[in-house]
Design a protein around this nucleic acid. Structure first.
Lengths: 338, 338
DNA sequence: CGCTGCGTTTACAACGTTGTACTCAGCTGG
DNA sequence: CCAGCTGAGTACAACGTTGTAAACGCAGCG
């Protein structure tokens, strides 16, 4: 029965409520004979502890929240699945929030959602204002995903965006391309991830002695297929259009590929394209997409571990910064043509 | 503060705890002057009700679970986002479970998860055994998504899969295609959705006087890009290969498009391709994909409403079957070539 | 002036769990 | 033979909320 309580188990086993509780949690010493009887009663009645009562008493619910800008973006869906798996492995449950990329919503979530039910929050910030976050009053245990800003008093899990972007750009350079565009430069205020990818791109160009042409870095308002398409169209109107594009995520790249196709360009012959995120569809696009593959599983595991540690340690413990790996996956969209 | 309680608010407003509770829930009559004072105190202290205590007292947590076979499948990610939005509109929160398409896991979830925290469950079943489900003991309020079986004692939300599949097949026929393959026939036991789509396909062929060739319906083990690719490769080895393919979802279609491209086939000239689900990437694939677009938002809203009604009504109320709309979206992959 | 009735507010007891402090029996060592 | 100890189990209160039932103040009426 769903409504089985410690009391029911206790009566059936002929012991006190507290003894059953002790058996369930396994913390106190219980005589073997007693434990056995209790366990049988638990099995007979199919007892399941009531999470709310437990939470009320202990202040721990075993539920953590994962807040992403947009669940339908494949990268975040894939990340969410990994986080759910990692949390399950550690005995806790994940509640997913979709911030819609709104700064207000992100701040609300960073400040502890509307409800003390949540033990802690994993937040993948998009527009979050650093100062607003730095000043947050309610100290809900918080771990940030994929950002880095020393201003924000929180744990971070990230990959080395700058090195990854440099590696992707180096790869395009190694194909002999010299007019390498970049899609993903935000029109509004930059957020940390973008700044770092841009930095990696510029570093690679500089190291290769290729001057940076600002016209090859069109503004985008979001990391979507539509924006990728728009940016690509803009690039193709240039007198001297690019021979390669590095997109800051795979959706942008997908839009760019689409437009290249509409304009009759052969990829990679006329235009090499690289993305970032390695979402599953990029393996199946036509042509398949070269992309930076962050270790999503690693990110998820590091993040859940860090959050659980933070929950245990309290707000005073020093903030940590954890780095997950990545890998450049070369596919058709940049493969040397025969 | 996160730890603000009714008691704190009551003290500040100079009233009893219960009066504050009454104001918060707005059910009982409270004098205007009192309410105003209480509201000010609530605002001053930034009071947020404690969900666990409330749940413990009322038996309602405001949390519903959504269980999908695979969150990373774009269709389910898009559906999940719609469900989250629909639930938020109605003041409740969604906990997402990923069953991994396992029958055991689905049954476990249909039987109420491990925890009475959840008020009800939205389940998108894949392999669920009807008899196991019919016999489930714990009657957690349950609404099934996208299935139809009169054996299962539960509410259903679905679209008319058969009519939709027929419409898609009719469309391919209208292009003059006669060797129309179908990808998505399961190798193992069929589940309801597949049966219905197959039925729609066969009905359309029959109405057009086109005989059904079983070799044009290869087995698939899952609705993935990889399986779509495998099935397409198999179809292309036939002596008399198809001139059109109807895929039971967009991922299969994506795999099929990919293979068609590898074999140098021009879509739709040599091969017309249609899918099912209208996931966002299908708008951006090369070529863009003709597909059946279920009204995901409608499905989500109907489902959440039905679940909330079921939670209120108890297990005894008669089971309902709700139908959401769909639409055939014609894109390049079947557009008449110039 | 007291009684009735109404609208508003309150005291109290739960909901199921766990931490603290306690009891109790059996055993050890002096 | 008893003090002191240990290990096992228990009683009680509390976590923050809400339903029930009762109390309160006030107006109107007899």
């Amino acid at each position: 029965m769903a409504g089985t309580r410690l009391k029911d188990v206790a009566e059936r086993a002929g012991v006190s409520i507290k003894t059953v509780s002790n058996v369930v949690r396994g913390e106190t010493r219980v005589a073997d004979r007693t434990r056995e009887r209790v366990l049988r009663a638990i099995a007979d009645l199919d007892y399941q502890p009531n999470a709310s009562a437990r939470h009320l008493r202990t202040g721990r619910s075993g539920i953590i929240a994962l807040a992403v800008p947009e669940l339908v973006a494949p990268y975040f869906a894939e990340l969410a699945a990994q986080v759910i798996a990692a949390a399950k492995k550690r005995g806790c449950t994940v509640l997913i929030e979709d911030t819609g990329g709104s700064a207000d919503e992100e701040l609300r979530i960073a400040c502890g959602l509307s409800d003390p039910l949540i033990d802690g929050v994993l937040l993948s910030p998009l527009r979050l204002d650093e100062q607003a976050l730095a000043a947050r009053e309610r100290r809900v245990p918080l771990v940030l995903l994929g950002e880095r800003s020393y201003e924000i008093p929180a744990d971070h899990v990230l990959i080395d965006n700058s090195a990854a972007a440099r590696e992707a750009t180096d790869h395009l350079l190694s194909l002999g391309r010299r007019r390498i565009a970049v899609i993903g430069q935000p029109s509004g205020p930059a957020h940390a991830t973008t700044v770092q990818r841009m930095h990696g791109y510029l570093t690679a160009l500089h190291a290769a002695g290729v001057p940076h042409d600002p016209r090859l870095a069109p503004d985008t308002r979001a990391f979507t297929r539509a924006e990728g398409a728009t940016a690509m169209r803009a690039l193709l109107t240039l007198d001297d259009p690019p021979d390669a594009v590095f997109c800051f995520n795979d959706l942008l790249a997908s839009g760019a590929l689409r437009v290249a196709h509409e304009h009759g360009l052969r990829v990679p012959h006329d235009l090499a394209v690289a993305g970032f995120d390695d979402v599953e569809e990029s393996r199946y696009s036509v042509p398949s997409l070269t992309t930076v593959a962050p270790d999503k599983r690693g990110i998820a595991e590091l993040a859940v571990d860090a959050l659980l540690r933070r929950i245990d340690a309290g707000a005073m413990a020093p903030h940590t910064r954890l780095t997950a790996g990545y890998e450049l996956v070369v596919r058709e969209s940049t493969r040397a043509t025969g």
